[in-house]
Computed example of a mutant assay.
Amino acid sequence: MTDETKRTLRTILQTAVALAVALPAIVEASGIPASLPWAAGALAVAGGLARVMALPAVQNLLPGWLRTDNRGRP
């Protein structure tokens, strides 16, 4: 895998996690009721993704260049 591909994949993953973290604020700011089924589902998935990505076990499974801790980084 080329360095450019790795950077692209890392950026996509980081963007997805950032959106997952920001989604509750986006829903609140937009005035959409969080109790709507699609909004509640999206918030649940976003929260779950953010929690799972923060688990040490998941961090250990990720290649070094995708980890958010300092292990495996140059």
Rank of each mutant, 00 (worst) to 15 (best):
A34Y: 06
T15C: 03
R67I: 05
A44I: 03
L62I: 07
V17R: 10
L9I: 09
K6D: 00
A42Y: 13
S30N: 06
A39S: 13
N70W: 07
L55F: 01
L61M: 15
A20T: 07
R67C: 04
A18V: 02
A25Y: 09
L66M: 15
R51F: 12
T8Y: 10
P37M: 03
L23Q: 05
R73L: 12
G72N: 08
P24Q: 12
G72T: 09
L49F: 13
W65P: 00
G47R: 05
L49M: 14
A25I: 01
K6T: 09
V58P: 00
V21P: 04
G64W: 11
R10T: 08
D3A: 14
E4K: 13
T15K: 02
T2Q: 10
A18F: 10
L43R: 14
L19P: 02
L61C: 04
Q14H: 10
K6R: 15
Q14K: 05
R67F: 08
E4S: 13
V52N: 02
M1W: 11
T11D: 11
M53T: 00
R73N: 09
L66S: 10
A20Y: 06
A22S: 12
T5Y: 11
A34V: 11
I12H: 06
G31C: 04
R71F: 05
N60R: 15
T15D: 12
V45S: 08
